[in-house]
Design a protein around this nucleic acid. Structure first.
Length: 1089
RNA sequence: GGGCGAUUAGCUCAGUUGGCUAGAGCACCUCGUUUACACCGAGGGGGUCGGGGGUUCGAAUCCCUCAUCGCCCACCA
């Protein structure tokens, strides 16, 4: 063919084009692979990258491993699907956008829920595009036609359906319990979203008052304002007498009853052995309070500030301010005994790092311990979610085929341990971005609602315009001018008195005074107070805790006048007076996305609701219809304002992505599941490949949700990769400035090089160190491969197609070198296949019989050099190259495909068939051929060495004598091999004439190669005899030592008796080889001196 | 406090059920402008396998212990 091909591989020039070719071929989509129905499947659900920011090395490594598996399996002829997508990542994304708008000087309350969500969606769309393009850059062969996003219409319905199903099975419930609260995110967190940070803290020893008999110790004095008990160990003699007694204390926020209780959990050695119990603000204390029926006083609000219950001295202060103030108070009253520095594990939010406040709150939970039976579900027969999740995963050393196998299996232990200790999962989040909890509350008019807190006041309150409006809550948005005065008029025209109370001065709010005004309003049931949505920069928060503000109506949002008018007409139909008299609060949201009006209730308020609730399985039930229908259907429908934990939707990922996205065809969930073709074809997925850091967050959730919903495991295997770190093993982070940008590396070294640098040296479950020199090294490998191909394509006359002449597909080998390279190629096929099958990716490439060694050392450095000397065998060159390209393709798809195209192939390498081989895949199969060839290599290397060490140029031709003095040396067959391949030795080692001398009587004893070669080569007079003699002396010395060792071993009766016969035999052989070697060395030494 | 992992050449790592005089790549030293490749070729040096103890004929590999580093879990307030 003799082609002109660039001297160096330039990835930048070809990668994009190749990717385009792949994508346009349609072969990423399994439907186009032309496979039969019965073809084995291979499916990976791509762990959806967060819809935030850009692709980092973690994603890049994940894509490299997955694409490797996917390409390998596709070439194996499997029905291969790699389904890509993105995750909305509620808290992470929301936090990110909040930061962005903060730079513009705004908060989410300024924008309101809708405008804010618009901003989020805008942001998401943008970063999704970035991620998608970068995923392509990595060469990912995923099916873009099946791309999904967790907020897609179909996936969202799946979320609602599963929620409803679980609710009906009583696996989802609403409970008023202590939860982890992040004051920064203003949301609850699941237990595993809380991180612990070690830090020093002061442990204060003090008494509540002078008369109190017990000194307590705490690191959080401010919480003592909510104490209702002191716990001691029942065995503690010091306090035994007090157990059961009740003391009254006053810390400035009213009289508290403190009961002395006994609890075995209390450590006698820590502090004073007495623990002040704060039920509302400590997980431990909460449990004690439950057991002992204690009062729970909530003194810290959702905003992280002290509330009214903490007393007027503390209300409105941050926790830290309150702590300082309270310590001062204790100090002033001489109640502090001592202060000690202790180590403490501070709970912080895994997203924003803010300190977590445990708070009691009404939230939605998934019951993990409730046993249920589901018809047609083989797992759930009187079993709990937790039990099933434990049951379907193989333990270490357990290898049941229909169970999930975790690789590496040590993580199975971690999984089981974690799952066993799982508590009910709190799934509601006070985040705006995400799947809204699909629960609508049917408000029975007349129920008593309690207004909570969360009155937000913005500085920009247009006091002049509207006579000081009250802002009731923060969502909704829009031009107040559009509706506010009009709304007031509407009420008044209906004979309702409207009062718009004064706002507290935002600069210096006197909340108590302001609250008093509200108290007054409450007494007048005919009064309505109109609120208006506005940004909240200042929150009243805890100061208003527990207050009933009476009949408040908040109307938010950008309603047009006519709409408002229409709305109130409807309200009239519903007996507006009745509503007025009974509904304490509601708000009206008009969404620009939806054609209907929803009736909603303020965010925080809803948690205080105690109303009948109705779960609506499919919100689309309402869509397309006007709010009239809603209003007709029931009195008032209020959707829960919270959204679901992002892991709730990701937990469905393997199957929600495979459900028919044209979901409106299906009326019921069961119908949808049963009739989605992709779900039938591709679920359960084959491998879940992801980082070990989300084993609990995600893997565990998928197992829970999928076994429950489908009665099927979500995946057969879990392959966990490690984290990418820098050369020192540190995490890559912006603050350290040690991050590597994958895109920058791709531009510099090419995608293939980057992929290899992440695949090599990585093993399941272990972290990977990555640095630029490493990537550079694999760039060199890629270039070497390029040049090997270049040489072959330039020197071969034409690419035979198919390869011929052939013998079972393998071309005829003429020479020893031919046979040798073919033997090793067969071995490489076995080795690569076995390694990939067993997930030993790095091993496939880097080990003794791996790809690197074959391509660079055996093929390029030996075979190609020999092919320049011997009669050229085009068929073999092409055969080896083609096979090597196929074997390497999953690792380095771009360069291999490019070479394949240079060869003039019509079909894409991507869909070529994986090389076949005979024999066992996990055994190296090397024969006499290999030993013979190694003899040649050994002789050549020895001649080169001697020449090199004696300053003789490799090019300079010398005379060489190969001697064999003893009968255990070279056999006649060996001499035949050497003679046959004499020209190779002469060319590669620079030899003028090659002579043999043998003193052996019999040459048929077979012995190992090292002994045969070492010391035979004699280059005569050309060497520095003194230097060479020294070297040989040293060698003799070492060999003698070795012989002594071997003899000692063989003289040991126990060794001969106990060791397996073949081992003993091996040792004997080694001994005879060494003895022979030493004789040769001595002989040589003699001839030198 | 509990659990897991790591510790092998200057660096990054192999070393699969215990059995080649412990290997590779990079770096290093010497030599080399042979039309595939200097992103290369030839040759070479370099390790008490973290320390100590044990099991065994035999240990980098199995057991115990100590040390250092890293990670995960946990309500010592």
């Amino acid at each position: 063919m003799k082609k002109e091909i660039p001297k160096a591989y330039n990835p930048q020039e070809v990668e994009d084009e190749i990717y385009k070719k792949w994508e346009e071929s349609g072969m990423f989509n399994p439907d186009n692979l032309g496979l039969s129905e019965s073809a084995e499947k291979f499916v990976i659900s791509m762990p959806p990258p967060n819809a935030t920011g850009v692709l980092h090395l973690g994603h890049a490594s994940m894509l490299a491993y997955q694409d490797l598996m996917v390409r390998y399996n596709r070439m194996q002829g499997k029905n291969t699907l790699w389904l890509p997508g993105t995750d909305h990542a509620s808290i992470a994304t929301q936090t990110k956008v909040e930061k962005i708008i903060a730079e513009e000087g705004q908060t989410k309350y300024d924008l309101g829920r809708e405008k804010f969500l618009e901003r989020v969606n805008e942001y998401v769309e943008n970063s999704q595009n970035t991620i998608k393009n970068q995923t392509r850059k990595m060469g990912s062969s995923c099916d873009w036609e099946r791309e999904r996003y967790t907020l897609d219409d179909g996936l969202s319905r799946a979320v609602r359906e599963v929620f409803a199903k679980m609710y009906n099975d009583e696996l989802i419930y609403r409970g008023d319990r202590i939860v982890n609260w992040c004051p920064r995110c203003e949301s609850t967190l699941a237990d595993d979203e809380v991180e612990h940070k070690d830090q020093k803290a002061n442990l204060y020893y003090f008494k509540y008052n002078k008369d109190f008999p017990i000194t307590i110790a705490t690191t959080r004095p401010e919480t003592k304002l909510g104490d209702t008990a002191v716990a001691v160990n029942p065995k503690d003699k010091r306090y035994k007498k007090y157990i059961g007694q009740v003391f009254e204390i006053d810390l400035g926020n009213g009289i508290h009853k403190i009961k002395i209780i006994a609890d075995r959990e209390v450590e006698m050695e820590f502090g004073t052995g007495a623990l002040g119990v704060t039920p509302a603000h400590s997980m431990t204390d909460w449990e004690m309070a439950e057991k002992n029926d204690l009062e729970k006083i909530k003194i810290i609000g959702e905003d992280g500030k002290m509330n009214a219950s903490a007393g007027k001295d503390y209300a409105g202060l941050t926790v830290l301010e309150a702590r300082e103030k309270f310590v001062k108070y204790l100090d002033k009253n001489k109640l502090i005994e001592k202060v000690e520095e202790v180590d403490q594990a501070l709970s912080v939010c895994y997203r924003c790092g803010a300190s977590i406040e445990p708070l009691p709150s009404k939230q939605w939970f998934v019951a993990v311990d409730k046993k249920i039976t589901i018809e047609g579900n083989k797992y759930f027969q009187n079993k709990s979610l937790k039990e099933v999740a434990l049951e379907v995963v193989n333990k270490i050393d357990e290898k049941e085929k229909d169970k999930i196998e975790i690789i590496p299996d040590r993580f199975a232990k971690t999984y089981h341990n974690w799952m066993e200790n799982l508590h009910d999962w709190c799934i509601s989040r006070q985040i705006w971005f995400g799947h809204r909890v699909p629960v609508w509350y049917k408000k029975e008019l007349g129920a008593n609602l309690k207004f909570q807190n969360n009155i937000h006041v913005g500085k920009e309150t247009p006091e002049e315009k509207y006579n000081k409006a009250v802002l009731l809550h923060a969502w909704g948005s829009g031009p107040e001018e559009a509706f506010f005065p009009w709304l007031k008029e509407e009420f008044e025209s209906r004979g309702i008195e409207v009062i718009v109370p004064n706002l507290p001065n935002p600069e210096n709010p006197d909340f108590n005074k302001w609250l008093e005004e509200f108290e007054k309003i409450e007494t007048d049931a005919k009064t309505i107070v109109i609120g208006r949505s506005l940004g909240a920069t200042l929150a009243l928060g805890s100061a208003s805790r527990g207050k009933n503000f009476g009949n408040l109506v908040a109307a938010c949002t950008p309603l047009e006048n006519e709409e408002i008018s229409e709305f109130f007409e409807q309200m009239g139909e519903l007996d507006f007076v009745k509503i007025k008299n009974n509904i304490k609060q509601y708000s009206v949201i008009h969404s620009s996305n939806d054609p209907y009006i929803k009736l909603e209730i303020s965010e925080k308020l809803s948690r205080e609701l105690d109303v009948e609730l109705i779960v609506v399985e499919n919100a689309d039930h309402f869509s397309g219809e006007s709010y009239k229908e809603i209003l007709k259907a029931c009195d008032v429908w209020i959707q829960d304002p919270d959204t679901l934990d992002t892991w709730f939707s990701s937990g469905l990922w393997t199957f929600s992505t495979l459900l028919d996205q044209n979901h409106k065809k299906y009326e019921t969930f069961e119908d949808w599941i049963a009739n989605s073709p992709d779900l039938k074809r591709f679920h359960p997925t084959s491998v879940m490949e992801t980082g070990y850091d989300i084993l609990f967050f995600w893997i565990a959730r998928m197992i829970l949700m999928t076994t429950y919903t489908l009665g099927e495991i979500p995946f057969e295997n879990v392959y966990l990769h490690g984290m990418v770190r820098d050369k020192q093993g540190r995490k890559m982070s912006k603050s350290l400035g040690n991050g590597i940008d994958p895109i920058e590396m791709i531009e510099k070294y090419g995608t293939d090089a980057l992929r290899l640098s992440m695949i090599i040296g990585s093993s399941p479950g272990n972290d990977l160190k990555l640095y630029e020199e490493k990537i550079e090294g694999y760039r060199n490998f890629v270039n070497k491969f390029w040049n090997v191909s270049r040489y072959i394509l330039m020197s071969v006359d034409k690419v035979p197609h198919p390869t011929s002449p052939k013998r079972g597909g393998v071309p005829m080998a003429k020479t020893l070198a031919d046979k040798w390279i073919l033997e090793h190629l067969e071995n490489l096929k076995r080795h690569t296949t076995y390694s990939l099958k067993t997930y030993n990716f790095s091993f496939a490439f880097e080990s003794e019989f791996g790809i690197r060694d074959f391509m660079w050392d055996k093929f390029a450095d030996w075979y190609l050099e020999i092919s320049k000397i011997q009669e050229k065998n085009d068929a073999i060159l092409i055969y080896v190259l083609e096979n090597l390209l196929k074997l390497c393709h999953p690792f380095i798809p771009f360069v291999t495909e490019q070479i394949w195209q240079e060869m003039g192939k019509e079909k894409l390498l991507m869909v070529e068939k994986w090389p076949e081989f005979e024999g066992k895949e996990n055994e190296a199969c090397l024969t006499q051929i290999n030993l013979d060839f190694e003899l040649l290599m050994g002789i050549i290397t020895e001649i080169r060495r001697v020449k090199n060490e004696n300053g003789i140029s490799l090019k300079e031709k010398v005379d060489i004598v190969i001697k064999s003095e003893t009968r255990k040396d070279l056999t006649q067959a060996d001499f035949d091999i050497i003679a046959e391949n004499r020209n190779i030795i002469e060319n590669l080692a620079g030899v003028k004439s090659l002579k043999f001398e043998t003193g052996a009587e019999k040459l048929d004893d077979w012995i190992q190669f090292e002994a045969r070669v070492f010391g035979f080569v004699n280059v005569g007079d050309l060497i520095d005899t003194e230097k060479e003699a020294k070297r040989i002396e040293k060698e003799i010395e070492e060999t003698e030592k070795y012989i002594k060792q071997l003899k000692g071993k063989l003289d040991n009766k126990q060794f001969v008796q106990n060791a397996p016969a073949q081992i003993v035999e091996k040792e004997k052989q080694k001994l005879s080889e060494s003895e022979s070697k030493i004789k040769n060395l001595q002989e040589k030494l003699k001839s030198l001196l």
